[in-house]
Design a protein around this nucleic acid. Structure first.
Lengths: 206, 206
DNA sequence: TATATACGGAACTCGTGAGTTTCGGATATC
DNA sequence: GATATCCGAAACTCACGAGTTCCGTATATA
């Protein structure tokens, strides 16, 4: 979608190093997380990547294209929904997803979403990319967990999996971005026990 | 917090018209909703308010101060938590809150939040103002509704009111800003029946 | 009516960031 | 070793927006 590239030449010369792409995209992501779309400058991205500004523009035609590629490359970091630990219970599976690396990754994603939020309305391609790279992978994991619970007869097959899959991400995003409070283990467990499981029909009567 | 103002002079002249403040703040809000913080320009605000740029700067010392005042003035639009219709049941109270004007107001608030999202990290005063003017009033309403349900013995007094009050706003914000899907009556009722009421201990077993 | 002030509008300064160009040096291909 | 290409760095152009100043006009007070 971005890379301005060319037909294979017949001969000669030093080749463009694809590894630099990764470094630059990573620098762009750091800038987006720290400063947001409008706060990020190409000069700062280049400096952080120890690259020249011209090198950046040799690889992406504009700032918008660089940002789209940077957001898109977050997709590779997600774990495979077909390869999740199975604890035997829905609650166990949900709790098993709470790990410090996962929380940190989630915080980074949310800061990134906040940084590009005002662009999402005006740049549909960026909006689609962000959903595909940041939102959908986590929802896919939740869908698998809830489908398992249905398959093993733990919860009713009439629940709305799509709705259930979204509760956790929505509460975490709201707490971080709007309330500006930390998303820690305690908060996540409270969400599971007091909101998600009751919504799945596994109420723990008090 | 913003208004750059003065001691009372001894005599003379045309007075500054306070009604123009409202027009300018409203224009600023419209711009924030449509274009976000960085997309909004003082020229566009002035033009929309049919005012001169100098008039804007006569009343607010900077763009940041104007924006803070604009966000803050949204607080006046909220209905009083002490003056809510009482339908006699929690579900009835929650459903009664679903009205087209309320939905439209909520959409406007969310678009405003998206527009200033990237600023919230870097401008704590704006962040506090936004929470007080946009988030807290709605949470206050929900707290009243859940407290009533506790008082009438409809739900357990051991529920976490703060957590319950946040579920609705969080799901609506996520659906609008992240998923980019419409928040309509059907969606809100599904949230109430399948998430909020179960979390309150009022499960409707299927 | 005289005067001080606020007004809308326009011209202005000034800083900043996107995108371009240039250049000396490094490096892989031939 | 000759050459074509990529590199980092820096200087450059250009557009745009924040904030200021000025001016002719309108209006409320005295």
């Amino acid at each position: 979608m971005a890379q301005a590239d060319v037909a294979e030449p017949t001969k000669l010369g030093r080749r463009r190093d694809p590894a630099r792409d990764e470094v630059i995209l990573e620098a762009a992501l750091d800038e987006l997380v720290e400063s947001g779309y409008e706060g990020m400058t190409i000069d700062m991205v280049a400096a952080r990547a120890k690259a020249g500004k011209a090198t950046v523009y040799r690889r992406w035609p504009s700032k918008a294209d660089l940002v789209i590629d940077a957001v898109a490359c977050m997709k590779r970091r997600n774990l495979d929904p077909d390869d999740l630990p199975d604890t035997g219970t829905l609650r166990g599976d949900l709790i098993a997803m709470i790990k410090p690396p996962t929380i940190r990754d989630s915080e980074r994603k949310l800061a990134l979403m906040a940084g590009i939020a005002s662009m999402l309305v005006r740049n549909p391609e960026l909006a689609d990319t962000a959903r595909a790279a940041l939102i959908e992978p986590r929802a896919a994991i939740n869908r698998v967990l809830f489908q398992r619970a249905i398959d093993r007869g733990e919860i009713s097959s009439s629940v709305d999996i799509e709705q259930l899959s979204i509760i956790g991400p929505a509460l975490a995003a709201y707490r971080t971005l709007v309330l500006h409070q930390p998303v820690d283990r305690e908060f996540l467990i409270a969400n599971i026990d007091q909101v998600i499981l009751p919504a799945a029909g596994l109420g723990v009567r008090s």
